[in-house]
Measured scan of single mutants.
Amino acid sequence: CHSECLGNCSQPDDPTKCVACRNFYLDGRCVETCPPPYYHFQDWRCVNFSFCQDLHHKCKNSRRQGCHQYVIHNNKCIPECPSGYTMNSSNLLCTPCLGPCPKVCHLLEGEKTIDSVTSAQELRGCTVINGSLIINIRGGNNLAAELEANLGLIEEISGYLKIRRSYALVSLSFFRKLRLIRGETLEIGNYSFYALDNQNLRQLWDWSKHNLTITQGKLFFHYNPKLCLSEIHKMEEVSGTKGRQERNDIALKTNGDQASCENELLKFSYIRTSFDKILLRWEPYWPPDFRDLLGFMLFYKEAPYQNVTEFDGQDACGSNSWTVVDIDPPLRSNDPKSQNHPGWLMRGLKPWTQYAIFVKTLVTFSDERRTYGAKSDIIYVQTDATNPSVPLDPISVSNSSSQIILKWKPPSDPNGNITHYLVFWERQAEDSELFELDYCLKGLKLPSRTWSPPFESEDSQKHNQSEYEDSAGECCSCPKTDSQILKELEESSFRKTFEDYLHNVVFVPRKT
């Protein structure tokens, strides 16, 4: 048989008469490798580009789960590009990614509803959504962080984005990388972005840091009482949809009607710091009717980097990364020049730590249904340095008659930039024990000054392991946590139920 035959053949030295091919099969003959313009397919066939392209389009058009959109890589027609490569849609070739590779997620039936953290986790790592997304989240724990972890990498949506009755959302900033909504599939009414009845939605994105392009379709905003109209108009300008909307697409009466839409800028007039305090004062603000001013709200939190936005980490279910302080308005003076500047002394802060701070007014709604208010920009203030805590785990070892090696770990709280350490030492008198000992005694162990690591005695271990207080009263049991108490109650309830079950099964009433 021919060298490319495997198993047997019907005619000697003829690659077209093989029972099976050793390498690849091409047009009725066995070959060692697939010549151009053919590609290896499933490690035994040679196919042309049209064959591989037909497989790709067949799966793409069917949208069946589990099928493969075949691509070409290293002269092979394979189910998908290997790690580190992405497909070129024009020629199906796998090309190296520039940075992290995109991950295209194809949605069944063309859309997916995100109504819980669990459903959001199914899209973790996706960068391109081939379909439409509907966000409908009523509640949950730590929602802002969970949504950002699972949806934060999405850069492109081919269909539309719909935010509907998501009472738990305060902001859409968890879509931190969303840059493009194509609108290839539109919501009824030709809408590519749809926001309806979101009672706590206050911000779409921080438009000073976020760009969003909507290729096709219109915007729809109705019944978002805490979303200011200025935020919607800003989205029109940034996304390129200005002029597409009709009169009733953006409701003037049901958007922002319960919001404090600040239209003035508060400026800080005085800032002073110490290692654990920050004193702030800002310019006074009074609405047209000074009785509408209820006070100020001061927001602050630790910020290692200057990239904080107002609604980071917030949701309507209680999660809030900001510390909020309510401040009463100052006494009002008739003389504008003698107006008191409101302020606040922030206490209990960490030394040498940068804080993000902003302040906003708290006002009631005027009778004319106009909203007044003022808010400052987010500023960054760093507390002063102070003395560091003591170095940890000092170790001293003498390696000769004239040297001592000293080692330690950095302090747990540096409280500033540590530039150097101060080492103090003092000579001590020799131990009298060394002169009084009889060095001729056998088995004498000389006193040693070398360091030995501390260890816990058996008594201390027994005390720590004991669940009861000892007789001397030195140790006591740790208080039980809520989960331990709940577990004990469940076990007790189970024992009672099981005992009742045994009584009912074992003891049967005697027939009379």
Rank of each mutant, 00 (worst) to 15 (best):
K337F: 14
Q306V: 11
T383L: 01
Y300I: 14
E237R: 11
I327H: 01
D377H: 04
I181H: 00
R176I: 05
S321T: 12
W207A: 06
S269Q: 06
F175H: 01
G243K: 07
E246L: 07
P304K: 15
I188V: 14
S171L: 02
M235L: 15
D393F: 14
V128Q: 01
V381M: 08
L133P: 00
Q354M: 00
E236G: 02
V381L: 15
V324R: 11
E146P: 09
T213S: 08
L331K: 11
N141P: 10
R347E: 11
S208N: 08
E237T: 09
K234M: 01
R124L: 10
I163S: 02
L107D: 03
D206N: 09
S119H: 10
C261T: 11
P351L: 03
Q121E: 13
T371N: 09
E122L: 14
V390N: 08
R124F: 03
S173V: 09
I135S: 00
I404N: 01
I181G: 00
G183Y: 02
D115M: 03
V104Y: 06
V397R: 11
P287Q: 04
L349T: 03
G243W: 03
S376F: 00
H222P: 00
N320W: 13
N224T: 06
E156K: 10
E146W: 07
S119F: 04
Y380A: 02
N150L: 06
G343S: 07
R165I: 10
I278G: 00
P288E: 14
K162P: 00
Q306H: 04
N340P: 07
N136S: 06
L252C: 13
D249V: 12
T353Q: 09
L298S: 01
T353F: 04
L293P: 05
F365H: 02
G313L: 07
Q354E: 09
T213I: 14
Y223G: 08
E187Y: 04
Y355L: 01
K267I: 13
G140K: 05
I137F: 13
L392S: 13
H222Q: 11
Y223N: 07
S401L: 04
Y305M: 14
N263S: 08
S166Y: 02
F175M: 10
G159A: 04
K350H: 14
R272F: 00
R247D: 04
K253I: 10
N142V: 10
S274H: 10
Q339W: 06
D206R: 03
K301G: 06
L345H: 05
S260Q: 05
N211L: 09
W322N: 02
S260K: 05
T127C: 04
Q245C: 09
P304N: 08
R138I: 15
R247W: 11
K226N: 13
T273S: 14
Q314F: 07
I379S: 09
S396P: 15
K267C: 08
R347F: 10
N136I: 02
L180T: 10
L279D: 00
R347T: 12
G343V: 01
S173D: 07
N320M: 07
S166R: 00
T383G: 00
E302F: 02
K234T: 14
I379M: 14
S173H: 12
R165L: 03
V359G: 01
T213L: 06
E155R: 15
T241A: 13
R176L: 04
A303Q: 13
T185Q: 06
L266D: 00
N255Y: 04
F275M: 10
G313S: 10
L180Q: 09
L107K: 03
S166K: 00
T118L: 03
R164L: 15
G295S: 05
E236L: 06
N198H: 00
L186F: 12
T323D: 07
Y380F: 13
I395K: 10
G348K: 01
K407T: 15
P287W: 02
F358K: 08
S376P: 01
R179A: 11
T213C: 14
A195R: 00
F268D: 00
F221M: 14
T215E: 04
S376K: 02
V238A: 07
D115V: 03
S400C: 09
I271L: 06
H341T: 14
I378R: 03
G217T: 00
R347G: 02
T213A: 06
M346S: 03
Q403L: 09
T323S: 07
D393S: 11
N130L: 13
G131T: 01
C261Y: 04
L153N: 10
G189E: 15
L153K: 13
E302Q: 10
K267Q: 12
S116F: 04
V325R: 12
F358M: 06
T383M: 01
S319D: 15
Q314H: 07
L298D: 00
Q382M: 15
N200K: 15
A145N: 13
C126N: 00
G313V: 11
P342A: 11
A259C: 14
E236N: 14
L153M: 13
R244V: 05
F358Y: 08
L180M: 06
W282R: 00
I379K: 10
N130W: 02
I135N: 00
N340Y: 07
S119P: 04
A195N: 12
L219G: 05
N340Q: 12
F290L: 03
L143G: 15
N399G: 08
F268T: 02
N150K: 15
W352C: 14
S402N: 15
I135R: 01
A259P: 14
R179Q: 05
R244N: 05
E302L: 10
L108W: 15
S333P: 04
V324H: 05
D393Q: 12
V170R: 03
P225L: 07
K209C: 14
E122T: 08
R347D: 12
P336K: 04
T361F: 03
F358V: 11
S260I: 11
S319V: 08
K350Q: 15
N141V: 12
L153C: 11
S119C: 14
S333H: 04
E184A: 05
G217F: 01
P342Q: 07
Q216L: 07
D249K: 15
S338C: 03
P288D: 03
N248I: 10
Y372V: 13
C317N: 07
N340S: 09
E368K: 14
F290M: 02
L107R: 07
Q403P: 00
T353N: 02
A316N: 10
S402R: 11
V390D: 06
I250D: 09
L107Y: 08
K350V: 04
K234L: 03
R202K: 09
V324M: 09
N150H: 12
L172V: 09
R165S: 15
E148V: 03
A168K: 00
I188S: 06
D315K: 15
P388M: 00
S166M: 15
T383E: 00
W286Y: 04
A303D: 13
E156V: 14
Y372A: 01
F268I: 02
Y167P: 15
F193M: 13
P287N: 03
R244L: 13
P342I: 11
N399K: 04
L169P: 06
V325M: 05
S260T: 10
I214P: 00
M297K: 10
L153W: 14
L143V: 14
T215H: 09
L143N: 14
T383V: 02
K301R: 12
Y191R: 13
L201Q: 02
K209V: 15
F193D: 01
W322F: 11
R291W: 09
S321A: 11
R291E: 01
Q216K: 00
L265V: 12
S402P: 04
